[in-house]
Simulated scan of single mutants.
Amino acid sequence: MKMQVKDIVSKSILTPGKGQLDDYSHSLNPYAGCAFGCSYCYVRQLPVSLYREEEWGTWVDIKSNAAELLRKGLIKAKKKGPVTIFMSSATDPYQPIEVKTDLTRSLLEVMLEEQPDFLFVQTRSPLVKRDIDLFKQFGDKIRVSITIETDKEDIRKAFSPSAPPIPARMKALQEITDAGILTQATISPLLPCSREFPKKLKNIASRVTLDDYWMGDGSGGRRTEKLGIYKIYEQVGMEKWFNPTAYKVVLRMLQEEHGEVGLSKNGFMPGK
């Protein structure tokens, strides 16, 4: 299916933090829509997706005036108090179109000129390592997080076939960590994984955070339930993993390997 891509002029770029992101002053989304189209993405149940004719994962809007809006928005926001930014909450800032647009990179350049107090970069794309040179300039005011929801490629393909391979994500995270940048391996949402998963994450990130649908979709799992995700668990013979207590076993294994592990909302707090 051909991806529908278009440029749009956005009215705003910094959104006040609320709900799961109320620890941040703002969220920042360079794009609307996401080419990765993960089956479990809670954004599928938000207005940006529900009121769109095209299916989630088949369209991307490029906010062509994002850099200009961000510069103005940062200057204004910084006058009111500390500015902490989560990029991104409803799209992936490093999805494939970023290779052509450099839009996310342009926003990082703006934020280096008008630095926020803290920037959290959330992605599942190895492309993020392209911007290591800019990340370094933020010092300890930035954390780069890569989603690694499982270590099993067959599971990744079942739930998010258009998302980047797990080994490539791990390699990118290792490179960013080795560059001296604060990082995070984000297991969100937790998908069926092997017992070796915690060991595979050893030393590739500064810290690890674990989340699942019930804690992290912003509705106690109701949004996820509407997506019919359980059918995929049935198809791969992993029904027992679709359980609000399944994370506890993995959490214990992670703690044995890594010590302190972030859990859901608290694992994304700025500056920690």
Rank of each mutant, 00 (worst) to 15 (best):
residue 100 K to I: 07
residue 100 K to Y: 13
residue 100 K to M: 11
residue 100 K to P: 00
residue 101 T to E: 13
residue 101 T to K: 07
residue 103 L to K: 04
residue 103 L to Y: 09
residue 103 L to F: 10
residue 103 L to P: 04
residue 103 L to T: 08
residue 104 T to W: 00
residue 105 R to C: 00
residue 106 S to P: 00
residue 106 S to Y: 00
residue 106 S to N: 12
residue 107 L to P: 00
residue 107 L to E: 03
residue 107 L to F: 07
residue 108 L to Q: 02
residue 108 L to I: 07
residue 109 E to P: 01
residue 109 E to V: 01
residue 111 M to K: 08
residue 112 L to N: 13
residue 112 L to V: 12
residue 113 E to K: 14
residue 114 E to T: 12
residue 114 E to F: 14
residue 115 Q to W: 04
residue 115 Q to P: 15
residue 116 P to W: 06
residue 117 D to G: 15
residue 117 D to R: 13
residue 117 D to P: 08
residue 117 D to K: 11
residue 119 L to V: 15
residue 120 F to Q: 11
residue 120 F to S: 14
residue 120 F to K: 02
residue 120 F to V: 05
residue 121 V to M: 10
residue 121 V to E: 06
residue 121 V to R: 03
residue 122 Q to Y: 14
residue 122 Q to C: 14
residue 122 Q to S: 15
residue 123 T to N: 10
residue 123 T to I: 12
residue 126 P to V: 10
residue 126 P to K: 09
residue 126 P to G: 09
residue 128 V to M: 05
residue 129 K to N: 07
residue 130 R to D: 03
residue 130 R to K: 14
residue 130 R to H: 05
residue 132 I to P: 03
residue 132 I to Y: 06
residue 133 D to S: 14
residue 133 D to Y: 13
residue 133 D to R: 09
residue 133 D to H: 14
residue 134 L to E: 01
residue 134 L to T: 00
residue 134 L to W: 01
residue 135 F to E: 01
residue 135 F to T: 01
residue 135 F to K: 01
residue 137 Q to S: 10
residue 137 Q to D: 08
residue 137 Q to M: 13
residue 137 Q to R: 15
residue 138 F to N: 04
residue 139 G to R: 09
residue 139 G to K: 08
residue 139 G to P: 08
residue 140 D to I: 02
residue 140 D to F: 06
residue 140 D to P: 04
residue 141 K to T: 02
residue 142 I to Y: 05
residue 142 I to S: 03
residue 143 R to L: 13
residue 144 V to M: 02
residue 144 V to I: 12
residue 146 I to D: 01
residue 146 I to W: 03
residue 147 T to I: 11
residue 148 I to T: 08
residue 148 I to C: 05
residue 149 E to L: 10
residue 149 E to Y: 08
residue 150 T to H: 06
residue 151 D to G: 12
residue 151 D to L: 04
residue 152 K to L: 15
residue 153 E to V: 08
residue 153 E to D: 13
residue 153 E to L: 12
residue 153 E to F: 12
residue 154 D to C: 02
residue 154 D to W: 14
residue 155 I to M: 09
residue 157 K to I: 13
residue 158 A to V: 11
residue 158 A to W: 07
residue 159 F to E: 10
residue 159 F to Y: 10
residue 159 F to V: 11
residue 159 F to W: 11
residue 159 F to P: 05
residue 161 P to W: 09
residue 161 P to Q: 06
residue 162 S to C: 09
residue 162 S to N: 15
residue 163 A to L: 09
residue 164 P to M: 08
residue 165 P to R: 13
residue 165 P to D: 14
residue 165 P to Q: 12
residue 165 P to K: 14
residue 166 I to E: 04
residue 167 P to K: 07
residue 167 P to F: 06
residue 170 M to R: 14
residue 170 M to A: 11
residue 170 M to T: 01
residue 170 M to F: 02
residue 175 E to S: 08
residue 176 I to A: 04
residue 179 A to V: 04
residue 179 A to R: 00
residue 179 A to C: 06
residue 180 G to I: 07
residue 180 G to C: 10
residue 180 G to D: 10
residue 181 I to F: 06
residue 182 L to Y: 11
residue 182 L to T: 11
residue 182 L to N: 13
